[in-house]
Design a protein around this nucleic acid. Structure first.
Lengths: 137, 137
DNA sequence: GCAAGTGTATCATTCGATATAGTACACATA
DNA sequence: TATGTGTACTATATCGAATGATACACTTGC
C-alpha cells in the first residue's frame, strides 16, 4: 500500500494526503520528477472516492509541490519552491507562528522549553538530506 | 476588549479562544488563579453566542488548564500540568510531531532547517518567564 | 482511428462540526 | 431574595468533507 490514511481522524483525508506527500518530498523519500499514483489507482487502493484524491493533488499543485500533465499523470516538481531564491516574509512569519504554538503546547504539558530546542536539534540531525541546495549551511 | 476573535477564520472561534488563552497562560500574561471573564460577559463583548464561549471553557477545563467553580466563575489553575512530575510519552511524541511539521513546511517554502533552529532559540530567549518551575534549566 | 488511461469538471447527496437561539436548571454571593 | 455564575438541553441553519455518478479533454500505444 503506497499510502496509509485514517478515515476516522478529525483531520480531513485529503489533508492527511497533502501532509504525508509533502513530508516524503521534504525527507527525500519522494524524488523530484518521480511519478505519483494515478487518482483512480490510489482511490481504489485506499478504497475512497477519486474526488478526494483529486482535491489533494489539486492543492499540492496549487502550492507548487507537484506538477500535473493532462493525460500523463502527476509528478513531483523538479525544483522545489524557494530554492536559492528569496523567502517571503509571510513564510517566515508562518514558521515562527508554528514554533510559538509548539512552545505553548510544550509549556502546558510540562516540557521544558530547552527540551523542545534539543528535540529540534535531534530531528534536524536525523534529517535525510538537503542536498546542498542552501548556501547558508 | 479582553479578547479578539476572527469570525471569518477557517479555524473555529472556540478553538481560537482556546489557543489564545493557553498562549497567554504560557507566556505569563494570565497568572494562575486569575479570573476569566464570565461566559455571558465575554459573549456580549465579542457579540457571539454564549454557547461558543462555554464550549471553549469546557475544553480548557478538560485539559486541566482552567478551573470552573459553579456559581463563582472560571479561573486559571494554580498548578499547570506536568509541573515537576513525569511527562507522558505521548506528550513528547506530540511535540516531536509538531516540530516535524514545522521542518516539512520550512523545507517547502525554502527556509534552511538551521534557520528554524535559530528562530526557535530567539523565541525561547524572548519567552517571558518560566518562573523556575523546571529544575532542568 | 481507436481503446485505455490520465486529470478535470460538474452535479446531487449524505454526514458531521460549527454556530446560533432559546429555555431551564443548580449553585454562590450579597 | 435577587443577581450572577456555569451547565444542560433542544432545535435550527450553515458550511466543509466526502461520496457517487457522469461527462469531458488530453496522451499514449495498438
Amino acid at each position: 500500500m503506497w499510502l496509509r490514511i485514517d478515515s476516522r481522524s478529525s483531520t480531513p483525508m485529503y489533508q492527511q494526503m497533502i501532509d504525508e506527500i509533502k513530508a516524503r518530498i521534504a525527507k527525500g523519500a519522494l524524488a523530484p520528477q518521480s511519478r505519483l499514483p494515478s487518482i483512480r489507482e490510489l482511490a481504489s487502493d485506499l478504497m475512497i472516492n477519486p474526488n478526494t484524491i483529486a482535491k489533494a493533488y489539486q492543492e499540492l499543485e496549487r502550492e507548487g509541490v507537484i506538477e500535473v500533465i493532462r493525460g500523463r499523470g502527476t509528478f513531483v516538481c523538479r525544483e522545489q519552491e524557494g530554492a536559492g531564491g528569496a523567502v517571503a516574509a509571510s513564510a517566515r512569519a508562518q514558521v515562527r507562528d508554528m514554533l510559538t504554538r509548539v512552545l505553548v503546547e510544550a509549556h502546558h504539558v510540562g516540557i521544558p522549553l530547552a527540551d523542545v530546542s534539543r528535540e529540534l536539534e535531534v530531528l534536524i540531525a536525523g534529517w535525510p538530506e538537503e542536498r546542498g541546495r542552501y548556501s547558508d549551511e
